[in-house]
Design a protein around this nucleic acid. Sequence first.
DNA 1: CATCTGATTCGACAAACGTCGATGTGCTGA
DNA 2: TCAGCACATCGACGTTTGTCGAATCAGATG
Lengths: 117, 117
Amino acid sequence: MSNLELPVLEPEAVPCCAPLSSAELSVGDSVTMAAMFKALGDPVRLRLFSKVASAEGGEACVCDIQDVGVSQPTVSHHLKKLREAGLLTSERRGTWVYYRVAPSVVAGMAALLDLDR
Amino acid sequence: MSNLELPVLEPEAVPCCAPLSSAELSVGDSVTMAAMFKALGDPVRLRLFSKVASAEGGEACVCDIQDVGVSQPTVSHHLKKLREAGLLTSERRGTWVYYRVAPSVVAGMAALLDLDR
DNA sequence: CATCTGATTCGACAAACGTCGATGTGCTGA
DNA sequence: TCAGCACATCGACGTTTGTCGAATCAGATG
């Protein structure tokens, strides 16, 4: 990946897109959306995302979710990917860093997959 | 990818899964679902999928959708990936091969991303 | 300040991926 | 039967990815 400061998609900047069944995706939108799907395209990342999404109070600190069978640096690496894709946000509070899902972004992905309209 | 005959997921075999917000994904389910998200995690593949999903009559032959900026073998390769992930089905009719989306599989992905329940 | 703990960054490496041109396969029609 | 078109497979390639251990950064606490 060309990691010269990946732009970390803003939660607001996701009016993308109409359902796939309704219209063909533009080249630009396909790049944007593919990056999001790709972020969920790894089992470890999907489990981390799942742990955050299903956590009490909608958030979880890294220490609560890092038991996924890989080393702690690898967990951190995956969480960064999810952040860069715009799917998670993070906030440091004292010693711990808390992660939350970005609901609008995830809703955008779900809307894209809604084939019934 | 370890391509020793990838099992080509059955459209029926996808009662997976409950929304991510409701419960943590199992290891097995995370592998299954990640493979699907990964299939949509490439811009070219997402555009091909989009072209099929938005096609007249719900299907398209390769010749109708192969104008995505890569070579014909590459298009074929990507369509195979989408088939293997269970997202598309294909059928040969005479000279042409027609692709359709597997609605239940895509619906399963959308359901997983539904955070509002 | 020194030290401990939680989390990120760095550097390296094998495996997987996306792409291509060449070749193979399946069907149609002359 | 043979030429031609549609599509898939093969073999090779540079790039990206997932993983690790080591090092570093950031707060908290003695």
